[in-house]
Write a protein that binds this DNA or RNA. Sequence first.
DNA 1: GAGCACTGC
Length: 938
Amino acid sequence: MISAKPTPSHHGFLAASEIGKQKENSHLTVGYQIRFESTRSPATKIVFLTEGLLLRQIQQEPELPKYQVLIVDEVHERHLHSDFLLGVLRQLLSLRRDLKVILMSATINIKLFSEYFHHAPVIQVPGRLYPIQVIFQPIPQEEMNSKLEKLDVRPYLRVMQAIDHRYPPEERGDLLIFLSGVAEITAVLEAAQTYATHTKRWIALPLHSTLSVAEQDKIFDMVPPGVRKCIVSTNIAETSVTIDGVRFVLDSGKVKEMSFDPKAKMQRLQEFWISRASAEQRKGRAGRTGPGVCYRLYAESDYDAFAPYPVPEIQRVALDALVLQMKSMNLGDPRTFPFIESPLTSSLETAILYLKDQGALDSAEHLTSIGSLLAKLPVDVVIGKILILGSLFGLVEPILTIAAGLSVQSPFLRRAQNDPDCSTARKPLESEHGDPFTLLNVFNEWVQIKSSKSANSRKWSRRRGLEEQRLYEMANLRRQFKELLKDHGLLEDPVSGPSDSYSRQKARRERKQLYQLKRQHEETKGRKRKVLKLQDEDTVGSSSDEGGAAEVSGVGKANSVDIQDIKFKLRHNVEELQASSSESWDPSGQHITLLKLIVCRGLYPQLALPDEFNASRKDSDQIFHTKNKAGVVLHPTSVFSSNPELLQVDEIQDDCNRAGKDSMKNVSSHHQLLAFVSLLETNKPYLVNCVRIPALQALLMLSRSLDTNADCSRIVVDGWIEIHVVESETALKLFSMAVQLRAAWEEALSLQLAKQSSVDKEKGRERKKISALAWRLLDYIKSKAEYSIRRLAGVEMENLYIGPQTVPDNACLPGVFPSTMMKPDHIKGGYAVTSFLTYNCLTSNMDFYSECLRTFWTCPHCGLYMPFTPIERMSHEASCKPEEVAVDQGTVDPAEQTTRSASVLSLQRPYYCGICDKDFIFTSTEILKHRRQHQQIL
DNA sequence: GAGCACTGC
């Protein structure tokens, strides 16, 4: 193990340049590889790559035969991937005696690493840092801000004054201020700029990740003589961005960190004191080019009380992806894996439970077929599900874009929200269906611009307040997703389009030109450092966000080559992209409806229910509830936040028929649910990236548990949402459709995953079936129903079920499918119809017996006319459905095998008729026929 | 009126 003093220099780079010198003539032997870029070739001897990428390679080749020596840099930073990698390498070392592993770390916590690797020898390398004077300057009590107040900027200004006072302006050296977040940065920046206009000795600049790339780059610009930069930054300057020329560091001692609340499945961004290791790292930023000074806005006793190190990432985040990857690497039980420092047991259990719930792990915690696929997709589990589901319905192109859009930082620049020009230009891109669809629109429009010769995509993006960089990233991501789906047989290789020799030649010529432009750019490389101007007196007052600044750098770039554009056009086939993006042009809205259903199924159970009293609330006060967290709000960037009317229900009120009934309040046929991508708590818990969908239809289709009363008009979903359907007739119709569609969808999916549709002839049949399924899903989603919906209160949730009844086990009712049995449910009471549906188990004031609820009904398929109880009718409908949608018994997911095989035998079953006082062996239809006889007699 | 720390496969 190699260690060095905590210095911001990149040891890895040092090594590279030394190696480079040795091998000057054959520079090709040293390469690098990151996610979307590689200079690796067969000749490569030394390669720099990221930990995540190496882990993916281990997934493919567990013994890493390609490598003899591995150097892992910056292990002290304790990233999720690096901690995991160390664990994997430690195991690999016992398999590969010839492998050499070298860890590089700052001197902190050397013992931990050395002992973990069986007391590996330590080599100390002296650091190269200039001396730094530390000044503790705690904030006086009266300037401490309470949580609700804006940050008090006086302590920060005092430091700037002190610098002006003590150091002559001709002595160079900039100031770097570390704060916790954007709000704090804005406050200090404003004050610093005001101070700067008086003294003319400062130029203050913000630095955080949500700034556009151009704005971030400004911190590298030069200042006029006698002027210092004051860079007001987040943590980004602690490790990610290195700025030379900093002589003064001002450390607030605060940091915002993401943690994970497993109970509510919610991310939480909270402010904390930094660790001593971080404090030292921040201090070190002052001593890179010469002796420096570090002002700390806390007392030395505070410093001593700080935690020694930051909490390793593995102990802070959701471990779904990690567990999934471990499973696919055959690393055994994650609970007993010898991590350098174990994650919390509860966190591992939550992840395992979640993966089971999502069907990625079976009950024995082995990967399922969908699980092993998800493990190979470099995305969150929910996004992975969306991709898989999308490939089923041949809606891959828009789904790829949506999945990519949800996996990158938002392309919407924050500052543009206040700019009226921007928001009007953005307006046409907004989708009333939800934020993922806005992302889809943005990308598709952008691709159209890219493919037109005359339009300038950079300009187009800037007009709309979009960070184009994010759109390039989306293009890369969606291509990677597409290739992965293809590799795993979920996507057919497109038949390559006709290409005549002329167009091939043309394409070749274009590529050649692009290469030339790229080379030109590389030769004149390095952005020329501009000289920053002092802030004008009159612009300062109004500009908290520096309206003009981006414009200046934009104009500066307009004349040069757009290297991003060239790289994009070299990497992607723009015409193909354009074709696929216009594919999702969908005037009828059919695709959108299906896409929404797919996205929502992927996101399930991340659903939020609008509060029933939202109609009487102000726009900004709209409240939503999730199963585990009541009272969440929309993130202000959501379409629904600026257009809350999209979620308003036009209530059917004071209808004379139901005026008196309390349960029939809030009746409408337009109730909507929100599916959301994440729940993030900052000041409040926010729903991020929302999609709206018809509530009842979606819940019947997606939820894990549906409990009903006798006529199915009252439904409890997943134990927390209650629905009253006005007409039980309607409820039954929906139930019947949902039950059948779920089975058909499930089957199509498992067929797809099992790759059983490899024979061409079958493929055609499969496709027909799937398109029939799609149409039926569309019909179903659009079906009308009037109902009320609300979240159950805590007490109500505890008294939902009638509980086990004294029914003998063999008293089974005919099932909904010919092959399933409706068994008495011994926990809830009532009857288990399918794995998700329990009939007549809800406690109710009205004590219905199913026999009382027979009504006459004509089967649309066979014309049978007779009185049915609700459940008999569903059963008949399911067994009497048209040929092409019949459920194929031949292909059953192994996970479901047990439940089904038992019931296949039970097509016929004992039936006791009370009127005849006789036992029969009947199929369900025969039972119905038999009962009809009695009805006629009576 | 009110907002997201930072990486990365």
